[in-house]
């Protein structure tokens, strides 16, 4: 699997997609380069893009990470395409911005069932909604947890932080 093949596959789904290649040097004596691709896509392009990646080779989702930017919530889908040959994997990160007022994304579980845990995690931590996800109950947080801990300054989460020692005051 080469980076070019993956870019070509992505562009069949999302024409003219701007893909940033960030090759990563690994090694000391005879360093090799591990291809890392980063691209920003709209949420409506997510399903075709993931299908294209799946078509390109064995597809693994490492994790979906995310961040609250205020007006938008940025989801980063970290994939690895093609394993089995030494140095044969291409790391692909798809950045999907969604508006905080309507944080809805299509679920990719239909294409990649292994994404369920990480999508459910984003529901509880960021308050994102996934359409078509098989299950949406909590994974890590207690049932009925009031807030979304990764939302910026989430008041409900802040209330739950219970510190026994305010060491900053003591030091001052």
């Amino acid at each position: 699997m080469t980076a070019d093949e993956v870019v070509a596959a992505l562009r069949t789904a999302v024409p003219d997609l701007a893909v940033e290649l960030r090759p990563r040097k690994a090694g000391v004596r005879a360093p090799l380069e591990v291809p890392e691709l980063w691209a920003t896509i709209g949420r409506d392009q997510l399903l075709p893009a993931v299908s294209a990646l799946k078509g390109a080779g064995p597809l693994h989702i490492s994790i979906i990470s995310g961040r609250d930017l205020g007006e938008t919530i940025e989801l980063l889908y970290h994939f690895a395409v093609g394993y089995g040959t030494p140095g044969g994997e291409v790391v692909v990160t798809l950045r999907v911005p969604v508006p905080a007022s309507d944080p809805t994304v299509p679920s990719i579980c239909g294409i990649l069932p292994g994404a369920e845990t990480t999508e459910r995690e984003k529901i509880e931590f960021l308050g994102v909604r996934f359409t078509g996800i098989p299950r949406s109950d909590h994974v890590f947080l207690p049932d009925g947890f009031p807030g979304h801990p990764w939302r910026k300054g989430d008041p409900e989460t802040a209330k739950l932080v219970k510190r026994t020692v305010e060491w900053e005051k003591r030091d001052g």
């Binding site: 990563r24 690994a26 090694g27 000391v28 004596r29 005879a30 360093p31 090799l32 591990v34 690895a80 093609g82 394993y83 089995g84 040959t85 030494p86 140095g87 044969g88 994997e89 790391v91």
Partner: peptide, 12 residues
């Protein structure tokens, strides 16, 4: 093996 890092690529 798949995405070498550190010196794993050279160690085979």
């Amino acid at each position: 093996q798949d995405r070498p890092y550190l010196v794993y690529g050279e160690l085979g």
